[in-house]
Design a protein around this nucleic acid. Structure first.
Lengths: 346, 346
DNA sequence: CTGAAAGCGCTAACAC
DNA sequence: GTGTTAGCGCTTTCAG
């Protein structure tokens, strides 16, 4: 007898052995019942379930994972939870994984490559079944770890670059170009840009690049631009918009790198009694739910957040289920512009 | 020799043994180096580190955890990531845990008790070092699991009830009462309430109860009320406010169960040209950053989100570090009202 | 249908 | 300083 009678004050977690002894069934059979594996007679089954419940047994997945060499976790590595973008991606991921036995585990990088590397290392050390990670830009060490891991890796949000394994997202360069096209087509010519400081956010940078690139092609130069970091985005949008219009009075369009600062700008313009979109047009990026509550609909472009999460999770699930199957390396979603009320139509 | 020479196409994850063989140092010593435990000569140390790096070895925490009976994870169980409240609590938790070797792992319940139970079961099966869980209301099974787990449990956000182990939060009943007091003191008498459907959110319910209770004590009855669920909160606030003021024309104050619908209401009133706070006063709850960008500051009450996260993590860290130490069972934070511009002062 | 034996990859506890 | 041994709690495999 290895295990002495349980002392009242010993909070040692219960083991399979405890359930086995309580039910008079071998550990192996108890394990089978608890995992719904193999055939077990209804009688034994019931005995085991009863004992497990009575004791309040919670299986030890650590031991289970070590023995079975299988861990039903999917590491999801994202820059931030405060962005609204990522909670929505998570929604898509969760919805898909809930129908499998896989579970998402979230790690947050705060947009810092070194933190991403640490988080990734920590997560990989739990030997997850797959990785979903935001962006295509990673440190060399991170890329090496992902390659060496031997598990499905899906890089999400962006397709402008070379994926390690698979990418699901939109082309932010193209998104920037498309918006620039729409703005020029509407007849705007004096365009200002406001956005986050670039080094922090590759996707915002790519949109900016695509945007300026298309303007340049049409012989239009960005008339003004400003970058911010930190603080309340809504307030930043408000303040930056005021400042920019004071500084460059003849601007007729403002392109924002996200909807939150765009909304701040819109609120400011409406208060200031400036005609939108006649005197000044506006556009943001993301299609956040918040916008629906604004007095006027901001022109924006959706980032296909839910679809990206959904597709990424599907790819992981499919590849875990059937490792030999073929799969697409790059899945590019097509974002659409919602014109709203802040861009002249003609 | 147990391990055959590595086939090129075998993506078997590396083990300590691989590093041991590559460096010519025993597994045990390799383990010591990698964990910074015990004394190892500088020479061996270097050899090991080099080999590990060259191979791209990532330790297997599953095996480590099983062997050492220690898992440096803290389960954090919250209703939603979309609420802005919880990302901020997470910030506090992360900041504290980053200075320890503990790591938060998030589980989301969508405000569903049964999902909470499932998530809790899953997380406990990984034998975390502690649990931080939102709210004091749980299923009997959840409470039983938490009690039986033998690990520190901190219930956060709310202190109106009996904690399983420890609670850190504010009294939402008191918060409701305080706001009612401030509103009455400002001279408002015809008060309407808008909020989420109650069964989904105990803390909103408690605020509502405290609020109506104090009104009743002063002989004031709620003049109108409406509950919503789902959709864009900002838009709901806008729409519900319009409807309520059409329905009950003599209302002079609107109390919202959260700042987002309050902000929607504020935007509507400003557009409609209704005098705020003269004709109608407004108050919300939470103190979300978003408000700073609005044309007028909404009267609100902060929920001490960051402090709650911070304190909860500190309690967990301290108790993991020193299980024998004494600790407070209930830590009540004191939220303060920011009057802003939507409540008459006198 | 059920059970016994042998690990999974690592670390605690000891030897040397 | 370094190595050896014996598990951690479970599942795989194979025998009945």
């Amino acid at each position: 007898m290895r295990t002495p009678p349980l002392a009242q004050d010993d909070p040692r977690p219960l083991t399979l052995r405890d359930v086995s002894e309580a039910s008079g069934v071998s550990e192996m059979t108890v394990s089978r019942v608890l995992r719904n594996r193999g055939d077990v007679s209804a009688g034994t089954r019931e005995k085991v379930l009863e004992a497990a419940k009575a004791l309040g047994y919670v299986p030890n997945k650590i031991a289970g994972a070590l023995a079975s060499q299988r861990v039903n976790l999917v590491a999801v590595i994202i820059p931030s939870l405060r962005n609204m973008v990522f909670p929505e991606v998570m929604t898509g991921i969760s919805r898909v994984l809930e129908e499998t036995e896989l579970q998402p585990v979230v790690g947050v990088t705060d947009y810092l490559p070194e933190k991403e590397e640490r988080v990734l290392y920590e997560m990989l050390s739990w030997r997850p079944s797959g990785v979903i990670i935001a962006g295509l830009e990673h440190t060399d060490a991170s890329r090496a770890m992902l390659k060496a891991s031997g598990i499905p890796v899906v890089e999400i949000m962006d397709v402008d670059g070379t994926p390690i394994d698979t990418a699901v997202g939109i082309s932010h360069r193209r998104a920037g170009r498309e918006m620039a096209k729409a703005i020029l087509k509407a007849g705007y010519q004096r365009i200002g840009f406001m956005g986050t400081k670039m080094p922090l956010d590759h996707r915002a940078r790519k949109r900016f690049e695509g945007f300026t690139e298309l303007l340049a092609k049409s012989g239009v130069e960005m008339a003004d631009q400003e970058f911010y970091s930190g603080g309340s985005a809504l307030k930043k949008g408000r303040d930056m918009t005021r400042e920019m219009l004071e500084r460059t009075e003849d601007l007729d369009f403002l392109y924002y790198s996200n909807d939150m600062i765009g909304a701040g700008g819109l609120l400011y313009l409406l208060e200031a009694g400036i005609d939108v979109p006649g005197r000044v047009g506006l556009a943001g990026f993301n299609g956040v739910e918040l916008l629906q509550g604004l007095p006027r609909q901001l022109c924006t472009m959706d980032a296909c957040r839910d679809e990206i999460g959904t597709k990424a999770a599907q790819i992981i699930a499919q590849r875990v289920f059937d490792p030999a199957a073929e799969y697409e390396r790059v899945v590019e979603m097509t974002p659409t512009i919602s014109y709203g009320d802040t861009l002249k139509r003609r």
